[in-house]
Design a protein around this nucleic acid. Sequence first.
DNA 1: CCTACAACTGAATCGTTCC
DNA 2: GGGAACGATTCAGTTGTAG
Lengths: 382, 382
Amino acid sequence: MRVCGSSPSPGPADGRDSLESVLDQIILDDCLRALARLPEASVDLIFADPPYNLQLDGELLRPNNTRVDGVHQDWDRFDDLAAYDRFTRDWLRACRRVLKPDGAIWVIGSYHNIFRVGAALQDEGFWLLNDVIWRKTNPMPNFRGRRFTNAHETLIWAAHGPRSRYTFNYDSLKAFNDDLQMRSDWLLPICSGPERLKDDTGRKAHPTQKPEGLLYRVLLGTSRPGDVVLDPFAGTGTTGAAARRLGRHFIGIERDSDYVKAARERIAAVEPLSQQDLDTLKPKRAAKRIPFGALVESGLVQPGTALYDPRATVKAQVRADGTLACAGAQGSIHKIGAHVQGRSACNGWTFWHFRDGGELRPIDVLRERLRTQLENGAEHAP
Amino acid sequence: MRVCGSSPSPGPADGRDSLESVLDQIILDDCLRALARLPEASVDLIFADPPYNLQLDGELLRPNNTRVDGVHQDWDRFDDLAAYDRFTRDWLRACRRVLKPDGAIWVIGSYHNIFRVGAALQDEGFWLLNDVIWRKTNPMPNFRGRRFTNAHETLIWAAHGPRSRYTFNYDSLKAFNDDLQMRSDWLLPICSGPERLKDDTGRKAHPTQKPEGLLYRVLLGTSRPGDVVLDPFAGTGTTGAAARRLGRHFIGIERDSDYVKAARERIAAVEPLSQQDLDTLKPKRAAKRIPFGALVESGLVQPGTALYDPRATVKAQVRADGTLACAGAQGSIHKIGAHVQGRSACNGWTFWHFRDGGELRPIDVLRERLRTQLENGAEHAP
DNA sequence: CCTACAACTGAATCGTTCC
DNA sequence: GGGAACGATTCAGTTGTAG
């Protein structure tokens, strides 16, 4: 095992690498060997772009008789489906060992391999969260006209297990997408132009380099700054580059020394974003909980204040203990909100409104005001 | 086994149905039993919409506390993945027997089951030709904000074997698609409105009825007039209806008598199409909506960039997730635009400007630039 | 008649914290 | 660990009703 910039070393006596020793490095080694040396439950997110097992024999010619430069590398050759399945299950199992219980994995593939991978993920105990379609704006056409233009690839997003509390930056993604929920189909160009790494002879350095935009969206949406992101098939380092740019740690594993060299140079050249620029939208769920009673306690809401439903057809009164009284019933803002609507549940913060001049405003704005007060106060506290 | 309009009959002595006796019929029977009675190598195309094994548990409420009417039918219950795999391999094997050597199969599914199905197809000897993505224009949202909107389903198109001379109507699909090669991602609305079959009580007759437009495209592209199309999970007969409309023969198998009744009535009412009508079935071209986040992702706007209102009195900063930060507030370009103007809504694309030399220009010009890049990005000219 | 608005709906693996 | 309370969360439609 070799790490970026260091000379070959035998590693510690227990055959394990410390996480620190490989952090933000590309490891030059076989994927299974390197994974076995990592400590278990140590990484937050995995992004894997395994060989697709394309099964291309012969060559493909364009209509003008030029040859299509397909994937013919040895690493994409497997004897049969069973061999590919064994390979898949082995690296998935090794990945799951090093993944934290609340971590998640992404795998990208095409119809040649993604069904094997998806089934193996389920068999190994991962819990599928979504399949996501990368729609290519500029796919290679089908030159022979015998099939549909293969215009997409499939990504699978899966948690360590059914009860994992995986990271999903819902609010950030929604803002990113002009205030609409992010869908499972993503439109992105393929990696070309200056972004595409070239070797010394000017040919593409790697046959299947992924666009950094794809990794940008994956990391922004399903990891947090400071997380450790592992890529067991690092190739020319797209995951590492995106991770470095977005303030995530990365560990890459790649067995081809030419790819490793290209990846290390590329990642070293990446300028990380500033902390401020990384200050993405905070999820509401992470905000500190403020009970309604605290608003009464702080004087922001006076006991006796009248609250109304959005259309001001129901009126309730605030009690000194932070409960609401309405038509004989009394309880929390949520309970009474559910009660007056005849429903089993209700978010009282958005249901109940107070009069502010002529307008009705949800009491949630008062909670927001108190939250700001508390945060500013906390900054000045010792 | 019973066929449409005929009384129950024991069938011929060899336990086989003649093809003629079941042509253009919906067979009321279990899928495996009915398949076993069909002559081998007798159908040209199979379209299968098997149970997805959704594994739904408990109930799901919309934000307004109404209940989502999920798929809780018995036919979608399996003990575990192994049971689902056995079921899948059994019906696929039975289908392959009745399929002509140059025939093909389509199977539709979601991430819950499609990886099992795809792997089983390969294991049973089918040869995958494409996976096709049905992108829904109007999917059900993710109500809890825990995952990406599940906005697509996957279809797999596979030939009987690697050397099958399958049908692919390249030219008619290309004409159908405004003279562009038909891609592997199809945009279609879900089945709703008058097309959606209702039962006597006005509720949906089947929980998962597919849009006929999807079947039009499948049959138009991968079968010929006069072909025999088999649907082993016929449900309320969408495949049969599309086949009859397009001048193909069909055989449907369905074990639920209510579904069979609805399907037979529906298909009987179908008026086969004229060529002129076929021409009106053009797919809608996808309008390319570009969210602000895509500008950041693509590098056209760098995180940290300053944006201004038209008179440069307000300044805001772009974050890595495509949100704007301004005077302590953070959100989408639209939200923050509305916020700084004290309005409830704002078109951020025209409100926010960036410095271009000495001039302020609306960010909408950057969106236009990206749109052009995406459309002209084709690396390979055909 | 039309327009406006309210209500309803779709293959869905859709919590977390505190006591 | 079990149960209750808290409280976060939706898009593109179609259908039905009111005016």
